[in-house]
């Protein structure tokens, strides 16, 4: 019953929205799509999660990165 009320609250809210409000939601939808379905998947992988299979490998990788002092090129 409560779930139905909540559903109707949102449903009627979106249904009765002004055309400008609907346009805004369309922009939001495009933005979220670009962010999660394009940018995140194709351009922003989680390097440590994807390139290494276990925390042990990740620790070893970070170790290599942190215990060498960089030189000037």
């Amino acid at each position: 019953m409560i779930l139905k009320k909540v559903w109707l609250f949102y449903y009627e809210g979106f249904r009765d929205m002004s055309p400008r409000g609907k346009k805004l939601w369309f922009i939001i939808f495009i933005k979220l799509f670009v962010m999660f379905a394009i940018l995140k998947i194709f351009f922003f992988p989680n390097i440590l999660k994807e390139n290494f299979h276990s925390d042990k490998e990740r620790i070893e990788h970070i170790e290599k990165q942190l215990i060498i002092t960089p030189k000037k090129d």
Partner: peptide, 22 residues
């Protein structure tokens, strides 16, 4: 509405560009 979730890109960048830091 326009600003919502723009900050999430920063979190994406932590995982991709700043993984040593993360």
């Amino acid at each position: 509405a326009i600003g919502v979730a723009t900050g999430i890109i920063l979190e994406f960048e932590f995982g991709t560009n700043w993984s040593n830091y993360s």
